[in-house]
């Protein structure tokens, strides 16, 4: 087992470097289609009439709709040390509702690198933070996602 870290200076140079911002219009059709795709019949996410009478005065997006507002490419490609990658998880924090008609600007950056020995051998954990800012300049939400990069194929466990 090698003692040296798999985290290189080149990897560290990616920390906190934001992707080029992309701005999306939150379209009613896209919100409704997303709610239907996840099988969520909540009227707040699709029923104009009911949503208008609700606390937001109109349709809002389901919380994880933000996932469909995909961040732009990183400014340069992150050098993954291993061929295998897993999606470890996600952590959303919500500050403002996302309404139909909003314009959301999305940026993403790697914010944390760590490594661990585990059942898949040496594993590199890459945590990225995506920031969603609305047209008023308010931070509507953040999402932290953790990618796991590993050398050993899972079937060799």
């Amino acid at each position: 087992m090698p003692d040296e870290s798999v985290i290189t200076d080149e990897m560290r140079s990616h920390l906190d470097v934001e992707s080029d911002p992309i701005t999306y219009d939150v379209e009613k059709g896209a919100v409704i289609k997303f709610a239907q795709a996840i099988g969520d019949s909540n009227p707040l996410f699709q029923d104009d009439e009911a949503a208008r009478k609700g606390p937001y005065g109109g349709i809002i997006a389901p919380p994880t709709f933000l996932r469909s507002l995909i961040a732009g490419e990183a400014q340069s490609e992150f050098p993954r040390p291993f061929p295998n990658n897993l999606d470890g998880g996600s952590e959303y924090e919500f500050f403002e509702p996302v309404r139909v008609g909003d314009r959301i600007t999305v940026t993403k950056a790697i914010v944390e690198l760590s490594e661990r020995q585990g059942r898949l051998g040496t594993m590199l954990f890459t945590t990225a933070e995506t920031r969603y800012v609305n047209q008023l300049g308010q931070l509507a939400a953040t999402q932290r996602t953790t990618g796991i990069s590993y050398a050993t194929p899972e079937e060799e466990e």
Partner: peptide, 13 residues
């Protein structure tokens, strides 16, 4: 319910 506000949602796969 409709008046509730979701503040955080985290999951591990």
């Amino acid at each position: 319910g409709p008046e509730g506000r979701l503040k955080k949602l985290s999951v591990s796969y």
